[in-house]
Amino acid sequence: MSMAASRVLVTGASGFLGGYVVRDLRAHGHEVFAAGRNAKALGAVADSEHRVIGDLASFADLRLDVDAVIHCAALSTPWGRWRAFQEANIEGTGHVVEFARRNGVRRIVHVSSPSIYSAARDRLKISEEDVDSKNRLNGYIRSKIAAEELLQRARREGAVDELIIIRPRGLIGVGDPSLMPRLLDVHRRVGVPLFDGGENVIDVTAVENVATALRLALTAGDAAGGVYNITNDDPRPFRELLGTLLPLLGETPRLRPMNRRAAWVLAAALEGACKALPGQPEPPFTRYTLSTIAYSQTLDVTRAKAELGYRPEVALDDALRRVAEHLRVAA
């Protein structure tokens, strides 16, 4: 059953993706309630009557009449303690399910992650079914798989009426706190590792296009737990992406050819060493990071196009140019 949502709660609205989602929904006539922990960031996207300040555990007492929840909130990092991922991504999703059940919310649109496809091999045109549910590459992946399973179980048991799951790949955009800053930091410190001559093909996605997909998922798609890959549908060789982006930033590309197998062994050793250290500091690079930049990985978005009506509205080159212009001004 399709649902014309007009009142929507967005979790993680003080984050990178969440902020774009709130603005996109409002621009398309929805009444949006923005939930998050950062009051200042929420103030930039919602007025006081439409702000819900607090973590997901606080949803236990939240009463709000909305048609749908877009669940963007998550702990997204390649390294961290399992308990932190469990609390944020699994238990946090459980709080959203309970909120939806108690408040009679019809549809949950959940932001998952294509990190669950990660592997030490090339993978092209990955479909939504191509998931190893036992993937244990890192805690983030484990927690996102578990969150999807929790939601699908809740739908089967009737705690959630309608469910859509979105897996957006490699978000880029103005305000990105993760992908681009990490890449530039590595580039400036030691140079970007290059594997297989940089011919490995990868997908990235303009954050505006992900916001569009999430809005479409409010009223389209298979409400019985449909899962959808989202990308810009414009895969590029890693070297070509760097060759486009770095000159826009005024940077001379510093590329360091590396052997994939040797790098994987080193990353595993670094992870083991860091786990044994007090505080478990993040390694210089991880096996998960290598899986995203050392191997080809592209997603099939055929289903999203057919069932959600998804089309990338912001071209990849335009997205890269916007990010570069913003970073140059900020610097």
Rank of each mutant, 00 (worst) to 15 (best):
D185R: 15
D300T: 07
R121C: 10
A223V: 07
S112M: 09
V8Y: 08
R215V: 00
G279A: 08
E199F: 03
T298S: 10
T11H: 04
D161G: 09
S296A: 14
P253T: 06
L150F: 08
P278F: 13
A223F: 01
A34S: 06
L64I: 04
V210A: 11
S2C: 02
K125R: 15
V109W: 01
R261Y: 05
P177W: 10
R107I: 04
D196G: 15
I108D: 03
I172R: 12
A60R: 15
E313T: 11
G18V: 01
T93K: 04
T212D: 06
F85P: 06
L246W: 09
G175H: 10
L327I: 14
L270V: 05
A263K: 13
A206W: 14
T252F: 03
A27W: 05
L124S: 08
P168D: 12
L214V: 02
D222N: 15
P78I: 09
L124H: 15
R123Y: 11
L270G: 03
A5C: 15
V204Y: 08
G198C: 11
M180E: 03
G94K: 07
P281Y: 12
L245F: 15
A268Y: 03
R189M: 11
L248H: 05
C72R: 09
L218C: 02
P177L: 11
V66C: 00
P312A: 12
R188P: 03
V22Q: 02
N89A: 08
Y295Q: 10
A267H: 10
R189V: 09
F33P: 00
G309F: 13
V190W: 13
Y295F: 14
I164V: 15
A217N: 05
R261W: 06
S113M: 07
T298L: 09
A100I: 01
E313P: 01
G170T: 11
V69P: 00
R236W: 11
C72M: 08
R239N: 00
R215E: 02
R26I: 12
K134N: 14
E313G: 05
G243T: 09
A73Y: 01
R236F: 03
P257L: 10
T219L: 00
L320D: 04
P237D: 03
A224M: 10
F238E: 05
N209D: 14
G221I: 08
R169W: 13
G92C: 06
Y295E: 06
E251P: 00
T252M: 08
P247N: 08
E199W: 07
T77E: 11
A276P: 09
N103M: 04
A84L: 14
V10Q: 00
Q297C: 13
